[in-house]
């Protein structure tokens, strides 16, 4: 054996200062968590919380078995839900395309004014959940499918716009240079050099969002914007738990099918 007696016996993976800051960061996080917890639970009625398992068991026992006879009555709302998602996605795409071109650094006509405006539209649309959009639209244009469609469309602008403008910024600039060198108009450069490069990304984004929108449109009815959520809301209101189970099962099935459809579409089109 070699003599190792004269080497240091303590080894630490980081320097003392780094360890100290890390330790403080963790401490701060724990303190923040405790503080938030206190603040949040200020008004919590613990009796309800301790009663929760009994409530859960109660609801659970009422929920089974699902009321299968309710299924036929759900077909029309389901059709509405799918229409909300599809038409809303189409509307969102139609509005997101110009926004994306205005927001992309390499295609925007004015980097000083239009680009920030387009970016704001994207952020505003993205930060506000489609349910909130629906809440607003139901108040403004009245309950019904239209409010749902517009809500889905408004929420989709930000999602599609963001991913699309990132895709536009990543394109290869050389074909664009080559097409402009032939004396083509800007619209033709767009058509021949830019659009072909973003088509695959565009299809993937659109199908992906449609899939998400199917999920979201199932609950828009909770605030009156049409679709199967309306039935969910009214069933909960009258505490018809077997019907609720039926609706949830149908939603689950729809989501699984839409996921399969979107995966198939993506594979076929790209």
């Amino acid at each position: 054996m070699t003599d190792i007696g004269h080497y240091r016996e303590v080894w630490r993976p980081a320097s003392a200062a780094r360890r100290l800051t890390r330790w403080f960061a963790w401490l701060a996080l724990v303190a923040l968590f405790v503080f938030c917890w206190q603040l949040m639970t200020e008004n919590t009625i613990w009796a309800f919380v301790s009663d929760a398992p009994r409530q859960a068991a109660d609801i659970g026992s009422r929920m089974v078995p699902p009321r299968w006879s309710y299924l036929p009555a759900l077909m029309a709302p389901l059709w509405d839900t799918i229409n909300i998602a599809t038409l809303g996605t189409l509307g969102g795409i139609a509005m997101a395309i110009p926004v994306a071109f205005l927001a992309a650094r390499n295609t925007t006509p004015s980097a000083r004014f239009l680009r920030p405006a387009a970016l704001f539209v994207i952020v505003a649309s993205r930060s506000i959940n489609s349910l909130i959009w629906a809440l607003l639209l139901v108040a403004i244009i009245g309950p019904g499918l239209l409010a749902g469609i517009v809500a889905i469309a408004l929420r989709s602008i930000g999602f599609i716009g963001k991913l699309l403008y990132e895709a536009i910024e990543e394109i290869d600039p050389k074909p664009g240079e080559a097409i402009s060198a032939t004396g083509a108009r800007p619209a033709q450069v767009l058509d021949y050099a830019i659009v072909p490069q973003i088509v695959p990304a565009f299809i993937a984004i659109g199908v992906f969002r449609w899939d998400i929108n199917i999920r979201e449109s199932t609950i828009l009815g909770l605030v009156g914007a049409g679709g199967i959520g309306l039935q969910l809301q009214s069933s909960i209101n009258v505490l018809a738990w077997p019907q609720v189970t039926m609706i949830l099962l149908l939603i689950l099935g729809t989501v699984v099918v839409s996921e399969w459809v979107s995966a198939t579409l993506r594979r076929a089109m790209i």
Partner: peptide
Amino acid sequence: RALQEIIIAIFLVAMFGFGPFAGF
């Protein structure tokens, strides 16, 4: 993953009562 946040919230509100604890 299959259940929407909002649907989970409906059930948890029914079990734990209104307020941020159900949201948490």
